[in-house]
Design a protein around this nucleic acid. Structure first.
Lengths: 345, 345
DNA sequence: CCTCGATAGGAGAACGTTATCAGGCCTGAG
DNA sequence: CTCAGGCCTGATAACGTTCTCCTATCGAGG
């Protein structure tokens, strides 16, 4: 691969001049510039961004660490991030950590060595220490979807609590009193928050919590399948179930279908995270829609502002509003209702 | 951020020795090594991969260019690639080109400047020239999902033709004679191949092609919605429709539902690309399953072998077999049947 | 005629790592 | 006692850019 040195030689100028002509800085006469550009063209010269990064101290690369890009929710988040930073010339390094602290730590070390300018991460609980180290090292960090309590970094999340609460309150409004939840792992922020929303809704309705109706899943499809079976085998079945994420909802629907349960007559269902296919189910799925793409886009924009003005103002958390989309799987078709949108500094 | 120089100073040794201790090469006494490692720990030293890349001429980074990561198919492909190359220490740079030649060209320039070691790309038709340039520049390239006729690079694709043909033959076997297709764009490899499979099936059954029954879509959801409407408004409707990708299938299902059409009685449907939610539809969706994850994983492995032995053996194309999963949307529930699996050099 | 500023171009240092080379020490064989 | 050969360490040159200094020319203004 040709270097500026080669281009300079061919154009009959010094390296400095060639670099000026190519980099569009400093003084170069039009004639010389043309000469250099022609030489670069002839040699098929492509500047080496690695060497440039050495000098500039910036890589024009951002890392994105999520749990699993194969989950459509995260795929949309990633897409949103990329679109937001594309215009500013940043490339994205994608890392799937699979909620595995070891893998997450490995990736954090890797992106740190690669000197990415910034990082968007959907962190698992174990990452706080490493992230703090990166913050001190000058890497801009924005958390997305989840939020670590003890990390002074920006975050963009949805109001999980309000979303879950709206889902459960919707079921309560339809007359359900015995409502189960297939929740996410307690060690994950979203798992905890959605469970809290569920509890808050029941508390507000003065329904005493039945611990039997709270089943903790893994946020993955098989656990939805398995746990809905547990509900079905109970002597006093719940009449409705709130499933705390998209993949487990598919699992639950699969389980209900295999058991021949009619929805919503024998069991009503509300999911968290609306998907493209929710309206084409029979009955169409009532779900709490998360603005996944916006979550990513907002995180990307936030990161850009951090990178533009490294003046360390305090960490900001942006909270986006989920939206309950009432269809028929809950027992009644209502209009979608917005829940809450806020931002706190 | 501390450098080896800082570590060396703190440990009281030369830069060369510190580098040897940290890089685990050459001779270093155990005592010195311990000293250096302790110093590195104390300073929270993280080696600079940029500088290392300068020397080694390798970045341990691969680029992945797909059309849209928000499409679950590509999200799985990307995931497969990442898993395959993770163990060898490669990071992934993700680029969404949106089938936009300008955007694709921009990304190709960017990853070339960043000196990625290899590239997995689902190319659009305009990229051949740029890709050839990169090949000559020494970048390993593997095409995935699609294949450019005039590019001497490895490729991993599914047998689109056989998949589409199996889908249509299945419909023929159920007695359908008037079968429509919502195809993909002709300028895309997958769009053309699946259409060819459709035609081949009809030809083999001695059914004359009705050009009215071939509607070209965009591989995106709205076009499925829109085009199924065209079919519904025809005086002589098709009794079955083959939809050439996942997103358009959702659109088509939405359109059928809005029109109140019963599946498969009033219109049978077979989709290309099986999805998690296909079995929970009513009726469950018959679809041609693509091994999306394997497609990516195979491409990743192929790239690794290219990187390991740069001896330029001729380009290889690996063809993975799709699998027709017969459910009920086509009019009958049969067992899944494997189609074909081959590899040619 | 001298100076000043704008323009044009060159030489060389820096970024942080790895790799090459050379030199010093020690041990054991001759 | 000498010398070969293993060990250990240090100095320094790369890698390909950008950036900071320098020098030189030219025209205008005093």
């Amino acid at each position: 691969m040709p270097t500026v040195r080669d281009v300079a030689r061919r154009a009959g100028v010094s390296v400095a001049t060639a670099a000026r002509a190519l980099g569009e800085y400093g003084y170069v006469s039009d004639a010389t510039r043309a000469l250099v550009l022609r030489a670069a063209q002839a040699l098929d010269y492509h500047p080496n961004a690695i060497a440039r990064s050495m000098i500039k101290g910036r890589t024009q690369t951002l890392a994105v660490i999520v749990s699993d890009n194969a989950n459509p929710f995260f795929a949309s988040v990633v897409r949103g991030i990329e679109d937001a930073v594309l215009a500013k010339g940043y490339a994205i390094m994608l890392c799937n950590a699979d909620e595995d602290p070891a893998k997450e730590a490995m990736y954090l070390r890797a992106v740190r060595q690669k000197r990415v300018d910034g990082l968007v991460i959907s962190p698992s609980s174990g990452a706080a220490a490493l992230l703090r180290g990166m913050l001190e090292g000058g890497t801009a960090i924005v958390q997305v979807d989840r939020r670590l309590a003890d990390l002074p970094a920006d975050a963009v999340v949805v109001d999980n609590r309000a979303g879950a609460r709206a889902a459960v309150e919707h079921l309560l409004g339809l007359g359900h009193r015995r409502i189960g939840i297939i929740s996410g792992p307690r060690r994950l922020y979203t798992g905890r928050e959605r469970l809290e929303g569920y509890k808050a809704a029941l508390r507000a309705a003065r329904i005493t919590l039945d611990r039997e109706l709270i089943l903790e899943g893994t946020f993955k499809q098989p656990s939805g399948h398995h746990l809905v079976g547990r509900f079905l085998r109970m002597r006093r079945r719940p009449t409705a179930v709130f499933v705390a994420n998209n993949l487990m909802t598919i699992g639950a629907l699969l389980g209900l279908r295999e058991a021949g349960i009619r929805i919503p007559e024998e069991m009503a269902l509300v999911g968290f995270d609306d998907m493209d296919w929710a309206p084409i189910l029979t009955p169409p799925l009532t779900a709490v829609a998360q603005p996944a793409y916006d979550l990513g886009a907002t995180a990307g924009r936030l990161l850009l502002t951090r990178l533009a003005q490294p003046a360390p103002s305090g960490p900001r958390t942006v909270v986006l509003a989920p939206r309950l989309i009432a269809r028929a799987s809950c027992g009644a078709a209502l209009a979608g209702s917005s829940i809450r949108r806020s931002a706190r500094g």
